[in-house]
């Protein structure tokens, strides 16, 4: 009886965390904030589900593999979030006006200019143009990157 209550609380908690991730994915405005929704509640949600499994199962045999599941989730989820975030930032899949502070912008721009000024500049203009306007009206390579004008 007590076990059933604990298991149901844990399962409902885990399901709520999945719900949180889902709501976050639909409501957050850009890729990077959506990655937050996809990592944190998911890790906690999986933990709650695994705990529910352990309590329901009631034996110690299953515990090591459940711990292993969670450790692998802990190890992989930040890495995948980092890779998606890094790629998203570099290809300008973010809404810059939603950032109140960006301490990486100058450094990335400087590094890109050092590597290959002209090619990188054209590339940036193109990706920024397509990301900024889905219709792609100002998709010409001569147009400067719009998000660099204020810097």
């Amino acid at each position: 009886m007590v076990q059933d209550v604990i298991v149901s609380v844990l399962l409902i908690g885990g399901a709520l965390m999945s719900l949180a991730a889902g709501i976050g994915l639909t409501r957050f405005p850009d890729l990077l904030s959506r990655m937050h929704a996809a990592t944190k509640p998911q890790v906690l949600g999986l933990l709650l589900f695994l705990l529910a499994l352990a309590v329901e199962n009631g034996s110690w045999v299953l515990v090591p593999i459940l711990v292993l599941c969670w450790i692998f989730q802990l190890l992989t989820s930040p890495v995948s979030a980092h890779m998606v975030g890094r790629a998203g930032y570099r290809t300008r899949h973010l809404q810059r006006e939603l950032l109140t502070l960006d301490e990486l912008d100058d450094i990335v721009a400087k590094a890109a200019d050092e590597v290959d000024g002209r090619a990188a500049g054209d590339d940036r203009a193109r990706t920024a143009g397509t990301a900024g306007s889905p219709a792609g009206q100002d998709d010409s390579p001569t147009a400067g990157p719009p998000d660099r004008s204020e810097a």
Binding site: L16, I23, R27, F28, L32, P41, L99, L101, E103
Partner: peptide, 22 residues
């Protein structure tokens, strides 16, 4: 942190403001 993300998703949603901090 999970509760915070949940709360922000419910209350702020599209009006969220973020930052890149070094």
């Amino acid at each position: 942190a999970s509760a915070e993300v949940f709360w922000l998703a419910l209350t702020r949603g599209p009006r969220l403001r973020n930052a890149v901090v070094a």
